[in-house]
């Protein structure tokens, strides 16, 4: 099939950027969306033009690197599917496709469709872990964890950190991402100890990094390729209130 693409091209953070039109010809329905872009890029290189830059790595939907807004929807029209797992059979011959980068203040564009998501890493760095030293831990079965709790923790832990939730959010908020990590660790006895401080510092980091706040539109849940639920955001809010009642102001120190 033949398609018309409008792709965001931007040389760097200082460049204004613009949509450019490309033709994608002889696209097989078996191609993945990224393979379609590979094909377009091969054509561009043959013409001596620069290839469209886009992030991708594992191409099996788990590394969280791919990040494109396709026709207004992060990761495209297919539910619970990353761009790399989206196949061209979901498009029709003659379709026009708009491809844009994740847009948020906290995700500056580096080039074309590539954005800088290190703000998400910094949220985790501020407290998204259990502070355990290597070695000196008890036997794995020493602390029992109810299966129901582990299952919820795992539902939350499936987050791949792609940032689609931020891209979809009208406020550019990272609440679903942060809530997933807060919930994952708060559900387990190993993470519970630091839960109060964690939720406080992680939410403060969100603000510092320029993410917006949650207006409960639930766009994030609708686009999440891993089906992370907004009920985790309620859980984060609950954890925050609990933390605030116990000790206002994250002042537990290092």
């Amino acid at each position: 099939m033949d398609l018309t693409l409008f792709v965001w091209r931007q040389r760097g953070q200082l460049d204004k950027g613009r949509l450019e039109q490309y033709a994608a010809r002889n696209i097989s329905p078996d191609m993945s969306f990224l393979e379609m872009l590979d094909t377009v890029n091969e054509g561009l290189i043959a013409e001596g033009r620069e290839a469209i830059a886009f992030d991708h790595d594992c191409r099996e939907g788990i590394c969280g690197m791919c990040s494109q807004v396709i026709n207004g929807i992060p990761h495209g029209p297919q539910e619970k599917t990353t761009v790399c797992q989206l196949h061209m059979r979901h498009f029709k011959d003659g379709d026009t496709i708009y491809i844009e980068p994740w847009r948020a203040k906290a995700f500056p564009v580096i080039r074309d469709l590539i954005v800088d998501r290190s703000s998400l890493d910094r949220i985790i760095q501020s407290g998204g872990y259990a502070s355990v030293h290597t070695g000196g831990v008890p036997d794995a079965n020493a602390v029992l964890v109810p299966k129901q709790d582990v299952d919820i923790a795992m539902d939350a832990a499936e987050c791949i950190g792609c940032g689609a939730c931020v891209a979809a959010c009208p406020n550019g908020a990272a609440m679903l991402f942060t809530a997933a990590k807060v919930t994952h660790l708060a559900m387990l006895p190993q993470g519970r100890v630091e839960a109060a401080r964690r939720v406080c510092v992680m939410t403060e980091t969100m603000l510092r990094e320029g993410f917006g706040s949650c207006s409960n539109h639930y766009e994030c849940q609708a686009v999440c390729p891993k089906g992370i639920k907004v009920s985790f955001i309620a859980k984060l809010n609950r954890e925050y209130l609990k933390s605030f009642m116990g000790n206002p102001g994250c002042s537990t120190g290092e």
Partner: peptide, 29 residues
Amino acid sequence: LLTLENRTSRAQKYAVNKHLSATVAGKNM
């Protein structure tokens, strides 16, 4: 305050923007 803050958090708009679950009411609070 939150509205203004949230606007700067997503300053640049998408050329094509599709909302999947946001409501008219929600978007116009």
